[in-house]
Amino acid sequence: MEKEHGRGKHYKYGMVIDLDKCTGCGTCMTACAAENNVSVRSDESDKERSITWMQLYKITNGKEFPETEVSYFPRPCMHCDEDGRGGHHPSCVSVCVATATKLDHYTGIVSQVYTRCIGCRYCQAACPYHARYFNWWDGYFPKGKGLDRYLTPEVSPRMRGVVEKCSFCHHRLMRAKNQAYAEGRREIEEDEYITACTEACPVQAITFGDLNNPEHKVSQLSKSRNAFRLLEHLNTKPKVFYLSTKDWVRKLADNYLPDQFKSINKTTG
């Protein structure tokens, strides 16, 4: 686990989601599920057990009718970085018994090896974002309704009894790298590797790219005054950033002690 530091160029793929643009339409969820061969069930109403790599959380400012405001938190896997407290791994990676999930130091992507996962679900318990999903049923893609025909050949479907989660569409990175290699390039372009949710978002609220590359838009946006992350107090170091100018939205992204929250707007509270 330790030896991969050092050699080679380090990328840090990450995402910035502009919550002020997000309409909560759910296209990202659908695109994600379709792209990543997420199994379906005839009744998906059991939200505690359905699989949604990208999940939309609806939030409101809790005020009465005329002042009610609604916003949405699209929540993929945060692809947490090393914890910054001297620990080496994201909360889910350090607990995995079979080394089935790993933080790739070259890309910053937290991977999940389905064929190695034994289904102990310790990672689910350790993740504060509920970004990890267990396969409670056998994989199912109804035939004759077309669903089996658009399965992505590059993404392996999951068997029952293993944990799965957002992979930042890792297969798209592989595809882009292969393309670059075939064309004799060493680097891939910014727009060559984006996730399915980024591509699908109709209002372009999601931006994806290399956080380490100052020329990438995502890296500039992540340094914006309006940028924040979910549960930053826990030191999980997510690579998914959110943008919002609204204080009530920013405040709901983390737990704050009284007077701890700092407003970025001087006027509104």
Binding site: S94, V97, A100, G119, C120, R160, V162
Partner: peptide
């Protein structure tokens, strides 16, 4: 309790020594 009981031996074979659960097992 584990989702893939047949893979139980992975704990020993692919042990992640940073995991407390490995020590437990």
């Amino acid at each position: 309790d584990i989702g893939q009981p047949l893979r139980g031996w992975f704990i020993f074979w692919h042990a992640n020594i940073h995991s407390m659960l490995v020590e437990v097992s």
